[in-house]
Computed example of a mutant assay.
Amino acid sequence: MKCPFCNAEDTNVIDSRVSEEGNRIRRRRRCPACGKRFTTYETVELRLPQVVKHDGTRAEFDRNKLLTGFKRALHKRPVPTDYVDAAIDRIVQKFLSLGEREISSRSIGESVMHELYKLDKVAYIRFASVYKSFQDVDDFRDAIREVNKVNSAKANTNGNKPE
């Protein structure tokens, strides 16, 4: 590591500590040339895959776009921000763990729908209506029936009331 004060090519590590979260290392360094001390931080750099859109163009994976989609679908719905953040983290982690260099925008949309379905059925229907380009009331009715059918099946297997 180059010294930021005298630009000497080599520095000595005096102390290393892992952050409380465990995702960063703090290193105290000393330059043998000028004697000054400084701190560096080491973190993991993960590259999310490129997003291949419907028209074949590519874009950087953007977590903020996910958040915007969730916010629009969940507008005025009683879902805590922590749950939304956790859902987005699951989506990001899923695509990181695949190790792919590219993913389709369709697979991102499907993942968002899956997470919204678990969080809030109304938000799921809102997102699905845009994502699947609902054309009329029948499309909404079909989506609601699908949600009710799954909830009824869960209630029958668990012996509980539908959600």
Score class of each variant (00 low, 15 high):
Cys3Arg: 06
Cys3Met: 06
Pro4Glu: 10
Phe5Leu: 11
Phe5Tyr: 15
Asn7Tyr: 10
Asn7Phe: 11
Asn7Lys: 14
Asp10Phe: 08
Thr11Phe: 04
Thr11Asn: 10
Val18Cys: 05
Ser19Asp: 13
Ser19Cys: 10
Glu21Ala: 15
Gly22Phe: 11
Arg29Glu: 10
Arg30Ile: 08
Cys31Arg: 06
Pro32Asn: 14
Ala33Val: 09
Cys34Arg: 12
Gly35Tyr: 07
Phe38Arg: 12
Thr40Phe: 08
Tyr41Met: 06
Tyr41Phe: 15
Glu42Gln: 10
Glu42Leu: 09
Arg47Cys: 08
Leu48Trp: 03
Pro49Gln: 04
Val52Pro: 02
Val52Thr: 13
Lys53Gln: 09
Asp55Arg: 06
Phe61His: 03
Arg63Ile: 08
Lys65Ala: 05
Lys65Arg: 12
Lys65Asn: 07
Leu66Gly: 02
Leu66Ser: 01
Leu67Met: 14
Thr68Lys: 10
Gly69Pro: 01
Gly69His: 05
His75Val: 09
Asp82Arg: 13
Tyr83Leu: 15
Val84Gln: 02
Ala86Met: 09
Ala87Thr: 08
Ile88Asn: 00
Asp89Tyr: 06
Asp89Ser: 13
Ile91Ser: 02
Val92Leu: 10
Gln93Leu: 12
Phe95Tyr: 13
Leu98Ser: 15
Arg101Ser: 13
Arg101Thr: 14
Arg101Glu: 14
Glu102Cys: 07
Ser104Lys: 02
Ser104Glu: 11
Ser107Asp: 10
Ser107Trp: 02
Ile108Ala: 04
Ile108Cys: 04
Gly109His: 06
Val112Met: 12
Tyr117His: 03
Lys118Ile: 00
Leu119Val: 00
Lys121Cys: 01
Val122Gly: 01
Tyr124Cys: 00
Phe127Asp: 00
Ser129Lys: 04
Ser129Asn: 08
Val130Ser: 05
Tyr131Gly: 04
Ser133Asn: 14
Phe134Val: 11
Gln135Glu: 13
Asp136Asn: 15
Asp139Gly: 02
Phe140Asn: 01
Ala143Phe: 05
Glu146Ser: 14
Glu146Ile: 01
Lys149Met: 09
Lys149Leu: 13
Lys149Ala: 15
Lys154Pro: 01
Asn156Glu: 15
Thr157Asn: 05
Gly159Asp: 06
Glu163Thr: 04
